[in-house]
Design a protein around this nucleic acid. Structure first.
Lengths: 347, 347
DNA sequence: CTGAAAGCGCTAACAA
DNA sequence: TTGTTAGCGCTTTCAG
């Protein structure tokens, strides 16, 4: 209950009958001290439950062993993999991860970044709402790695959802669809622009008419609008900006008695929790988000620790070693289409 | 790119032509300094982009303005509300929230708590895997608030899921079910024990035969086992430990061609994301998790800041003011049954 | 191999 | 009102 005072290095030194500096050495580099002395100090430290003060270390070294993950919305399922991926890697390397929710607001994000400066050694910025210039400026004060964004000079990890969307279109084309809608996401979304730019030529190549609908907020609630716009547009398939939006589309179509996939095929993006739970199960573009998180963390650690190389851990085939040298070039991770029952032959 | 050196208070003082202490005062309590001087210092600080060093402050004050949220699994949707609730409250009060994932392991949890000591001012411990004694011991070193746990002397917030389960049983009884299964959760789960203790007398009172199945891991993957055990037991309804397990039950029943709710009713717990998305939509016990998070944060802040009272924010009816004095008594939050289409009259 | 002392950036006495 | 000084806990010269 009452939190008791922590023993300091001085307490340990006194109890072990040595000077603080000796105690410090014994604890941090046992090599440079008499083995017996070192053992004694370590034993005493353990007995006293000594834990070095992170603040004192940070004050001295200027490094906090803390990294922030900055997200627009912690509760968006899309980010779970990222949280887990960065968290795992950072923990392995002895870093603490702090989570910052910017509430989808550029202002909050800017403010957060400002506060973070000095509190953390670096930050992973995911789905930033800031402009390239703002991010660039922030990168001058804080080691930054961006996810799904390309900022010249700032390392980043990209998820190739645009490529996945093209796969989705190919899948539809091969099932006989000739008129397909893309329900687009936020106008400010960098990913959304890239996807449209990839879908348009692909549609031409495949002989498919592409109708761009939206923009829509990437939420379930916007799905009804998107579904209605799709039926109005006379398409036989909709590719949605993300799964949340696709869920809403499915709901609306169901409510209107429009059979999926018989009369309308639906494809989402992200393969979030629930995509295989809805009925019909959602065909969607899956990204290796957790791997992206690990890579982002590696990129950041490489910069912080100056040239440490990314260690492969077996699950990440295709996971290139990361060095400080590479860090300036964004890494692109492949995505893939997962076909479930929400897509079928053209109605 | 290259992170430049941060200006210190000394730089500010020098640029403003005053002593560091004056600069410090000007920045922290403008009242105790000549207005002109203060203005000048503030202006210079702003111009230089001065940000006080959190480490130095922490070293001096012993407080870090950081609070940890310790969870067994960050990616379990049940905890999202908690993350958001504690995060919101803490941010409001100027605290930074750090997230610690203990990977469902008591060892990792213990280790995490040990490391956290000194790094944070306090921690919210949710669904701890530790024994009462271990938590008690940890509370001697770190201000702690527990969620869904009662530890004598440690403040806590409880979600009355046991009460919700009784509501579920009443719902089933009133629909004519006379033989009902409870698919139980982890043997070490405190919540699970409370629920069984509440369900048994309720079953007697309602004239329902209660069959306890399990224990099962609270995961979708365990649902198949639970579903099979339920049909073997000849019940017409299953109440599952949580929604994840219930999803698995639904899947298995669907695969076996057993109609829900016609031949088997299914009820979950937590109302996680996806519960209303599955078909049939899941009847479940919803808890005010976000509110629980806010209250847990309030409880912790009250201890940290010594007697600050919880502020009501309009959305939390039933949200009592929290004072340091109350903190030793766990607060119990009511839950409610959300009836969807996975339950119906007894088959 | 070990000890004494300086100093990281800041705040809080204590003087002036 | 302002400046000077000490010291938070630690690591790191620099002597011994």
């Amino acid at each position: 209950m009452a939190v008791r005072r922590q023993p300091t290095l001085r307490d340990v030194a006194a109890a072990a009958g040595v000077a603080v500096s000796t105690a410090s050495r014994a604890l941090t580099r046992p090599g440079r001290v008499n083995a017996n002395t070192a053992d004694r100090v370590v034993a005493v430290a353990k007995e006293l439950g000594y834990i070095p003060s992170a603040s004192a270390r940070a004050l001295l070294s200027g490094r906090t062993a803390t990294v922030a993950l900055v997200l627009p919305d912690v509760t968006n399922p899309f980010f779970f993999g990222l949280v887990r991926g960065t968290g795992a890697r950072l923990r392995e390397s002895g870093y603490v991860q702090v989570l910052a929710d910017t509430e989808e607001s550029a202002e909050v994000e800017l403010d957060t970044l400002r506060k973070l400066r000095g509190q953390v050694d670096g930050a992973v910025l995911a789905a930033s709402r800031l402009s390239d210039e703002q991010i660039g400026a922030a990168a001058a004060d804080l080691a930054l790695v961006v996810v799904n964004r390309t900022i010249p000079g700032t390392p980043g990890v990209l998820l190739d959802t645009a490529g996945g969307m093209v796969q989705a279109l190919e899948h539809l084309a091969s099932s006989g669809h000739t008129r397909v809608a893309y329900a687009s996401g936020p106008a400010t979304s960098w990913s959304d622009r890239r996807r449209r730019e990839a879908l348009e030529p692909a549609a031409v190549r495949l002989g498919v008419e592409l109708v761009v609908l939206g923009p829509y907020a990437p939420l379930r609630a916007s799905g009804a609008q998107a579904a209605d716009a799709a039926t109005d547009a006379g398409v036989t398939a909709v590719i949605a900006f993300n799964d949340l939006l696709a869920f809403g589309v499915l709901e609306r179509l169901d409510a209107r008695g429009i059979a999926v996939p018989e009369r309308m095929s639906v494809i989402g993006c992200d393969d979030i929790f629930g995509a295989d739970l809805v009925r019909p199960a959602l065909t969607t573009v899956a990204s290796p988000v957790e791997q992206a998180g690990r890579m982002a963390a590696d990129l950041l650690l490489a910069r912080l620790e100056g040239g440490r190389s990314g260690d492969e851990d077996g699950d990440g085939f295709d996971e290139p070693a990361v060095s400080a040298r590479d860090a300036a070039f964004p890494v692109m991770l492949p995505t893939r289409l997962i076909v479930r029952s929400s897509t079928g032959a053209a109605g």
